[in-house]
Write a protein that binds this DNA or RNA. Structure first.
Ligand code: SF4
Ligand code: SF4
Lengths: 127, 127
DNA sequence: CAATTACGGACTTCGTGTGTCTATGATAAC
DNA sequence: GTTATCATAGACACACGAAGTCCGTAATTG
């Protein structure tokens, strides 16, 4: 029951991309050096962010990654969902009874955390 | 990033122990049959609950497990902490800078979920 | 003593997270 | 067009923890 390190890398990368938003896209080499992680591994993480529609990529020389769409709308939850998936933290023995009491409590507790992560946008931390 | 199945078993067991609270302690055999899980495995889970002070055990014939202390005070969070540990879900690269912005957001989000789990007591679901 | 029950350690199995390596494809500069 | 740069994808290796199983020991009852 831990957040993956990949999620940690993704959060740092996204915050960096938003804070130092250049006109030129920034390559994975530079992003990897900032965090002391291998570029090939970070590229896999970035590909997930691309498929989630959070960043866009450009091949070739002077290529790299850039935030896609409105920066003000990107929340913590978007990034976490892109890395960890959208399935519930609490999965039980198959049946998935909707009216089960334990199920309801766990899901609403998870919902409380997700609401918090959804309401805090990355742009708020970029100063 | 999932809750362990052991946590699920622990929640069901505790709810059963509170709802059908008998004067006699109930053995692990009976508890295991209710959930379709091996008794030896469930006993390990129950030992964790004992060490957390949530239940008390009695050896010998007619022994078993019984809820310990006030049943009204036992919350979801108590059980989850006993199984999953009390460490934060979000652990980062060692330094643990307290004033880091990402860190603060993740911790407060986790706090929101824990508050929810702390405020819902097991006794509320036992009817 | 004998039966019952909890406790503990050692062990196996399996899935996933965390990386690395390498090949392929796309694009810009020359 | 050629070459250098950069992202993408798959295969692979490794470590670690979750999920159980098995068996021996201790404590209590009768
Ligand atoms: S009783 Fe509820 S929480 Fe338990 S396994 Fe069924 S649906 Fe899940
Ligand atoms: S910058 Fe903050 S979130 Fe990132 S590793 Fe350091 S303390 Fe953790």
């Amino acid at each position: 029951m831990k957040y993956s390190k990949a999620t940690n890398y993704a959060l740092h990368t996204m915050l960096y991309l938003i804070a130092i938003a250049p006109d030129r896209p920034v390559g994975v080499q530079q992003l990897a050096e900032k965090q002391g992680v291998s570029p090939t591994y970070l590229s896999k993480i970035l590909t997930k962010l691309v498929k989630a529609g959070l960043v866009e990529s450009a091949s070739g020389a002077n290529g790299g990654y850039r935030v896609k769409g409105k920066k003000e709308d990107i929340s913590f939850l978007d990034i976490i969902h892109a890395l960890e998936g959208t399935t519930s933290l609490f999965e039980c023995c198959g049946s998935g009874d909707e009216r089960c009491v334990i199920h309801q409590v766990m899901l609403s507790a998870e919902e409380a955390m997700e609401q918090h992560l959804k309401n805090t946008k990355l742009i708020d931390l970029a100063k």
